[in-house]
Design a protein around this nucleic acid. Sequence first.
DNA 1: GCGGAGATTTCC
DNA 2: GAAATCTCCGCG
Length: 196
Amino acid sequence: MNHLFFRQDTVELARKLLGCLLIHRTPDGVAGGMIVETEAYVGAIDKACHAYRNRSERTEIMYHDGGYAYVYFIYGMHYCFNVVTGPEGEGNAVLIRALEPVIGLDLMRKRRRMNQLRNLCSGPGKVCQALDITKNEYGLDLCNADSPLRLIQYRYIPDAKIGASPRINVAYAGEAAAWPWRFYVKDNPYVSIIGS
DNA sequence: GCGGAGATTTCC
DNA sequence: GAAATCTCCGCG
């Protein structure tokens, strides 16, 4: 995947990223999984987006060309991983909310102190803990074949298998709170909220 | 400087 | 249902 791919419309990309593999290589080994749940955030119009009228040191990477990693720290204890999308200057990103574990299962189990496969990567904070993604990964180029953090085409998810819903925990965002910009693979047991 | 709130997870 | 826990931002 190259930067051209990530320059597409952000909501469209949130759908297309389902079925891709996210892989992180560290000195401990390689870990990764298939993306099964995403959320789109669009800076120009979306009150829930960190880059909504808020260009700062923290959000700076969101304004770059698509295909870079945006990682932020939340609630004093968790990291969340996003893919920057769209052309330069817009402030868009797709939050990766859940993976189906594929590579490095034992490494992820160890990092999560958890054996149950369904609880390894079923939430944005869990994904970062299982893959050891922290602020050190902020700004990494996801398109570079030599990068330790990469996105790779893996499975094609047909439209009929894609569900949509409002995004999670953005009630404060006014009318944007109701926009159906969360996407997930239907009937996949590794999404963060079962039954939706 | 200070205070509040947050794209979460976990356990009671 | 609430605690844990910290960084950033806005206010003044």
